Simulated assay, not measured.
Amino acid sequence: MRCITIWQPWATLIALGEKKFETRSWATQHRDAIAIHAGKKVDKAICQKEPFRSILAKHGYTADTLPTGSVVAVCRLADCLEVTESYGETAMLESPSQSIVIGDLEKAFGLFELGRFAWELADVRRLPKPIPAKGMQGLWNWEETHDFL
């Protein structure tokens, strides 16, 4: 299964279903299952800012309790959209198959600058228990097999 390493708290926000788009400087043609790996880095300062602090608290997390160095969720990478407009609290995302306007909460959880790409994550399933794994840059192959996949 393909996997992507994401710093905390963003990996957990995806696993919780609170973050639906992962923003990257590069596009991908991958459209299939993908595992979400929480890297070892935790941005503790952002965890103290809103809306991060209250969303994490709603689910019982703080910067000190976020899982790291482990796969926390599996999902489907449904589309890769380019950021074509970004203004105020909204952004326009476009791909050959759709156009989406995202609002303030989603925009707060990503870097939606012109020319960047938003990976649309669908059918997110948080793992019952994080599975330790060593992360890598880019898309990488996670060789684990588990009953939940």
Rank of each mutant, 00 (worst) to 15 (best):
D64M: 12
V71I: 15
L121K: 11
E94V: 14
V42F: 03
S25E: 15
M92E: 12
I34E: 10
L56D: 00
L127N: 02
C47V: 01
H37I: 12
S54W: 02
G110R: 04
A38N: 02
Y61K: 03
C75Y: 07
K134H: 13
D104V: 14
L93M: 08
A73F: 08
R31P: 02
S54P: 07
Y87C: 14
S99V: 12
P130W: 02
Y87D: 14
K19P: 05
Y61G: 03
A38H: 04
K58N: 11
T90R: 15
L139H: 08
T68M: 07
S95K: 13
P128H: 09
P51F: 01
A38P: 11
L93R: 07
A45Y: 13
K44P: 01
W119P: 00
A11P: 02
K129W: 07
G138K: 13
A78F: 04
S99P: 06
Y87S: 15
T84W: 08
I100E: 10
K19S: 01
G110H: 01
Y61T: 03
A63M: 04
L77M: 07
V74G: 08
P132F: 08
E89G: 15
V101W: 10
F52Q: 00
P96K: 09
Y61R: 00
A122D: 15
L56S: 03
S25Y: 08
S97G: 11
I14P: 05
K20Q: 13
L81K: 09
W119M: 02
F109Y: 14
S54Q: 11
G17C: 06
